[in-house]
Write a protein that binds this DNA or RNA. Structure first.
Lengths: 158, 158
DNA sequence: GAATAAATATCGTAATACGATATATATGCA
DNA sequence: TGCATATATATCGTATTACGATATTTATTC
């Protein structure tokens, strides 16, 4: 729809910003490959979590808590932030993790509204096993990912 | 569950593969950060697709088709493969895209069982706009992603 | 100490991926 | 040729889960 604009742009010495004027076959291929790689990694992660008896979100919640800088617990809202979901979604998620005995709720002594979500011994063990194989996997896919990212250096711009 | 094995391994001069023996705080943080970055990118993508009137999966289906090497169409099964979903999930997904007028079904002249899913003019335009901003975004997050990946070079091993 | 804000919780709903199953076409082989 | 089996796509009912709307509890402010 911007063909005419491109033409006008092309009449200048240098087009200001070609934007979506030219997205080439190679660009689609690069994006598609990149997304496929991400999906593969995410699928690997889901499979691993599933084998450990966890849903992907449960795994990510545990990781968010143990991966928090400085502390070993998080509040509901902070978990929601890190997981990019709404507060009440985090509430429900934590409900299920509590039911599984993988986290516990403790009211914050300094603010009665807030609760601290702590990972239990059992939760920590499962997360540790999962994390170990994830580190391996990230190492494995790193070269592929780097190669795919590199394709975008010269892409799409003009 | 493999604690005993670890113990036995630890009695050797050098543990063969410490695996999940030691996953440190920094490892959890690195994994958590990495996943957060992926979520952010995926959220950006969802938002962009949504603004274009598409679900994330619809966007990915269009991208998979136009991003297929050598051809400009794909069969249902191939779409399912690239999207890592079951065949019938892809069928339903394509149903919705057909309803939106973004793709069309054409029976393959060489195999009556197979159908070719082609992207329409309208579908292509939407995908082009989406792809342009995605290329921009990937360029933007590249440095962050590379930095995060780098953290895994020395991680978790032993 | 009443009003407002912040954190967490509850409930009903909608979207979608899935398993089980069905249909249509192709292929192999006696 | 014709039947058995395989492959590709389609249909239907179900379960999971994230969400919006709303409620409850505790803090804060003036």
């Amino acid at each position: 729809m911007d063909e005419s604009h491109r033409k006008r742009g092309a009449s200048r010495k240098r087009p200001v910003k070609a934007r979506n004027a030219s997205v080439k076959k190679a660009d689609y291929e690069a994006l598609a490959e990149f997304r496929y790689a991400l999906r593969k990694f995410l699928a690997f992660s889901e499979e691993a979590a599933s084998k450990a008896g966890l849903t992907p979100q449960q795994h990510q919640a545990l990781l968010a808590i143990k991966g928090a800088p400085d502390t070993d617990w998080l509040g509901i809202s902070q978990i929601a932030e890190r997981l990019l979901v709404r507060h009440h979604t985090a509430v429900e998620l934590i409900d299920r993790l509590v039911a599984l005995g993988l986290v516990v709720r403790m009211t914050d002594p300094e603010d009665g509204r807030r609760i601290q979500v702590h990972v239990t011994k059992d939760g920590e063990e499962r997360l540790r096993a999962l994390s170990a194989i994830h580190i391996e996997e990230v190492k494995n896919i790193q070269p592929t990912l780097r190669k795919l990212l590199k394709q975008f250096y010269a892409s799409g711009g003009e």
